[in-house]
Structures are given as C-alpha cells and as structure tokens.
Design a protein around this nucleic acid. Structure first.
Ligand SMILES: [Mn+2]
Ligand SMILES: [Mn+2]
Ligand SMILES: [Zn+2]
Ligand SMILES: [Zn+2]
Lengths: 145, 145
DNA sequence: GTGTAAATGAAATTCAATATCAATTATACC
DNA sequence: GGTATAATTGATATTGAATTTCATTTACAC
C-alpha cells in the first residue's frame, strides 16, 4: 500500500497530474538504481529500455518525482544537478572528494539541533539544510602522499 | 604591511603572475563592496569607473583574487557563482531565504567539531565545508502568514 | 466514444562558464 | 631607457546544462 509507486500515483491524482506510461517507466528506472544521477545520466539509462522517450520528458519527470517526495536534488558544486532517492531513505549529508569526485553519505543527528538553534536565533523557518564537507578521501590520500 | 593589497601583490610575485592595472582596479572595486557579487555583477560595478575593462578580465581576475586567498566562492544554489571577502573575515555559513533570496551570515563553532568528527570517522582529509540552511526569513514570514 | 487539457519529443533558446586568439602590455634583462 | 618575450587583455566564440516552445499525441473525465 505504501510503495513508492503508490505514493507517486497518489501524488499525481491529488494534484491533477496525469499518469503517463513514460513517467511510469522513468520512475521505474530511477527506483532501480541507487546512484546519484543527473538528468542526462538518467535519460541514458531510460533510453536503453525505452528508446523513444525524449530527454525533455526525463527532465520534466524527475521534477515531478521530486515534488512527489520520492527524490531529492543534490548539488555537489560541479554544475550539474543530481537526484537521489528520498523514499525510505533518511536524511543524510555528504563528504565529497575533490580529487576523484566520490562521495560518502553520512548521518549526523547533531546537525539537526544546530539547524534548530540557528533558526530560532534568527527567527528563521528552516525547511532543509545542506551540509557538505569537501576534501580528500581515504583512497586518494593513499595514492598521493 | 598586511593590507589586502599587499597580500595580493605578494601572491602575484610569488607565483609569477603580473600585476596589471586592470586587476588592481578590479580588486579595488571588489574590496570596496561587502556584498556577495557574481562575476557579472562585479563587472557591472567595475565598468562604471573603468569602462574599457572587459568581462573576461573580471571573470579571470576574480579567480586570481580567490587563489590569493582574498575572496571565496559561495554557491547559493541558484546557478550563479558569487564571491565574498575572505580577508579579515572569519569563516561563516549562511541561512538562505527561498522566498526573497536574502541570506544571513552565521558563525557556529560547533560545526567545526562536527566536521572533524566525521572526517576522522571516514579517514577523510577535510579542506572546507559548506553548511547552508534554506527556509523562510523573518520578513517573508511576516508578509505571508 | 468524444472532447479537451495535459503530456510528449524534437528542436530552439537561454545563460553562465569557459576557451580562443590577435593585439596589447608588464617585466626581466641589457 | 630601450628591447625581447611571455603574460594579459578584450572581443568574440564555444560549451553544456537548464529551460522553453510548439505541433502532435495521449490520458481521462464525462
Ligand atoms: Mn546521498
Ligand atoms: Mn557570507
Ligand atoms: Zn577521492
Ligand atoms: Zn526572505
């Protein structure tokens, strides 16, 4: 009853958005990977199984999937928007290696309190935060001492 | 002896980069404002006093100024890179209003410890972090209850 | 089934970032 | 101070992701 597909259908109905075969396919492919994909990368995956779905459709579908609460945009600062799963995934932040581009997902409950404290101090209503640590990962450190 | 201009001159000398009148003018204009300017915004400011300095020169100068440690790039997620002073400004993070685009600069020492803890846990060598809280500011809250 | 408004896909547009290249200029050397 | 030369400049071109346009197709309410 509470599968991501149901959440999606529910969201579409509730907002008067039609359920198209293309969007269903795109959602299916997106759910089938655990990677942090850009729109183009997702498009290339989609194309394998569904060669006649256009890029614009993928681009627009990803936004709908985000609005439905199933995906979230992440920005690693390299000029392309990536998307990660949100359904069944608790909030996390990222350590990003500036050498190889790899990233590590980290959970850090203390940061939530930090957000609350700062927000309260400035009478700011927080909706989300972005915490990213840039640096050199374990592997890259090894190969360039 | 330790003015930003001296830091700049030193940096240029130490790296075999020439000191041009254009770069000096651009640095001067940049230091003369406390705003978080994009390259184009800075270019428009520079143009007032120096109408024959081209955009490309401003674009390149900002990078040099960053490398000299006098400016830092900030990314508020709206697709344009902005630059803020670094000289004589301690590290801070930002609360960003998603309604009006305004931002609040905040200092939060605890976040440094958070960074260290996480880095140590993953044997990651951190160079910098980005902590941003998105939400609705005091003012925008007032005008849309 | 039919009408209609939303969705699609190919192509065009936008816009910041970045590259190119001939002309100009800073500086090391004499 | 003059000169060689390599860096810098500025106009312009290119790139690439994001976003829009629009004619055609399709979902779905009735
Ligand atoms: Mn993630
Ligand atoms: Mn700032
Ligand atoms: Zn790495
Ligand atoms: Zn605001």
């Amino acid at each position: 009853m509470d599968s991501p597909n149901n959440v999606f259908t529910q969201y579409l109905k509730a907002n008067g958005i039609r359920q198209s075969t293309q969007r269903d396919s795109i959602l299916e492919v997106f759910l089938g990977t655990e990677k942090h994909l850009s729109a183009i990368e997702l498009y290339n995956l989609v194309r394998r199984r569904h060669p006649n779905i256009g890029y614009a459709t993928v681009y627009r579908a990803v936004k709908v999937i985000c609005n439905a609460g199933l995906a979230e945009e992440v920005d690693f600062g390299d000029g392309v928007a990536r998307f990660e799963h949100k359904y069944g995934h608790e909030h996390h932040d990222h350590l990003i290696c500036t050498k190889c581009g790899k990233f590590i997902e980290v959970r850090q409950p203390n940061i939530e309190k930090l957000q609350e404290d700062l927000a309260k101090e400035y009478r700011f209503i927080p909706t989300r935060h972005k915490f990213q640590i840039f640096g050199i990962c374990k592997n890259c450190k090894k190969y360039s001492p």
